[in-house]
Design a binder for these strands. Sequence first.
DNA 1: CGTTTCAATATGTATATACATAATCGCCAC
DNA 2: GTGGCGATTATGTATATACATATTGAAACG
Lengths: 248, 248
Amino acid sequence: MSLVVTEDIESGENISLHQRILSDIREKILSGAWPPGHRIPFEHELTAEYDCSRMTVNKALSQLAKAGLIERRRRSGSFVRQPQSQAAVLELHDIRIEVEALGLPYRYERLERVQRRSNAGDRALLGLSAAGSVLGLEGLHFAGERPFALEQRLINLSAVAEAADEAFLEIAAGPWLIGRVPWSEAEHRIRAMAADDTIADSLDIDTGAPCLVVERRTWSAEHPVTHVRFIYPAESHTLVARFTPSQG
Amino acid sequence: MSLVVTEDIESGENISLHQRILSDIREKILSGAWPPGHRIPFEHELTAEYDCSRMTVNKALSQLAKAGLIERRRRSGSFVRQPQSQAAVLELHDIRIEVEALGLPYRYERLERVQRRSNAGDRALLGLSAAGSVLGLEGLHFAGERPFALEQRLINLSAVAEAADEAFLEIAAGPWLIGRVPWSEAEHRIRAMAADDTIADSLDIDTGAPCLVVERRTWSAEHPVTHVRFIYPAESHTLVARFTPSQG
DNA sequence: CGTTTCAATATGTATATACATAATCGCCAC
DNA sequence: GTGGCGATTATGTATATACATATTGAAACG
């Protein structure tokens, strides 16, 4: 994993062809338009589509392969890979997938939903400079009958106006946001924390029990989209990530 | 960040020139032979050194730049980047750097050192199939006068025989290993935990206080090298990582 | 009918080349 | 001096080309 790599997914201005091919394909994959297993166009087809040389297409596809988004097979073509569960933990953090991987039934339950003009705290969390409307959500993810994680989320309505019309009663905002907002960058903060009374109550653990806290801020093309805090009871959760020195 | 990208750093057999340039340079940087700020050879110099075209060199350097290991400046050349504290946290996890980034004096103190034939627990932690000698180390990292992290480490002596001759009294095994063993892959497990009596005593915190635990297993060309567990008091530490959907 | 062989195909890697772009250095005029 | 301007230099991106390599599918053969 390379970790601090930064790249913008701009619409279509000054970016190189290579970047454009990359983000076009990446978006098709992340949005689900090209599901896992789907064969993406051959190099010579993309060469025609983008009117460029095969080398340019090849560089972009090789990069996607190195990133693990696609798999390339000689003579057969290139295919969208199955999402790797370990990467999902840190990259997408879809709790439904985590829970179902444990073989437990998943359920989401909304605890709270408020819409307000952003206060200073909201802006600090989201990394916003100007004021604007935000949506605050709190909900519980269940694995079977037991609470699995508590989610506290802020959504920047200036970036995702449609979110104001959603109740998020039984679906978490995470899966809803993916596909609607192609994220270009995310920052994770991971720490340990003692559960206070409120958290202990929600998660059905003792006050003071250790929790793992994962906070994520997401941007889409420079605009802050959402800030989310997942709180896991310590005993229920381990994050796993594999790295190579520099994705070479 | 890409996360599940896997690549082997083999010696010099069937790998492409591009890969060889990549790992040569990466190793020089990770080992410290080329410290941060060092100007790495110009493309045309590497072209001469490896007797290949500039495109090949350029591809390798671009990749290192994308990975954040080097920084490229037009007209000036390419330079080894200062270790990004955020990336370092997860990638290298050099605690000295973390502590010094806080502006505090760093010190390491060995608590324990045992050499033994591996037992079942050791083999499970290291991911070893056969028995062999291992080195067990425990030590404390200090930031100023306060304990900053507790380190519990196992080293596979079959992979790093020289470690048997080292005392590791005042230097941690981590920095010692880097440079001697180019690691090709690492796996992190991150979780929260309540401090037991022993840990609380070492770290000078209360029993039951939440701790952040980071475990890392490292491989070098398929061989398990070391397993290390860092235990941080919760209030002193947050891991930060930035990601892009697929380092494009 | 099964097996071997071979040609077709898509990707993998490398080359030489060309032009664009950004940053720096040194020269020259003021 | 010093401020600006142009030449130089290293990287950034793209092209056309060439050959290697793995895999597939079909033809040839026993």
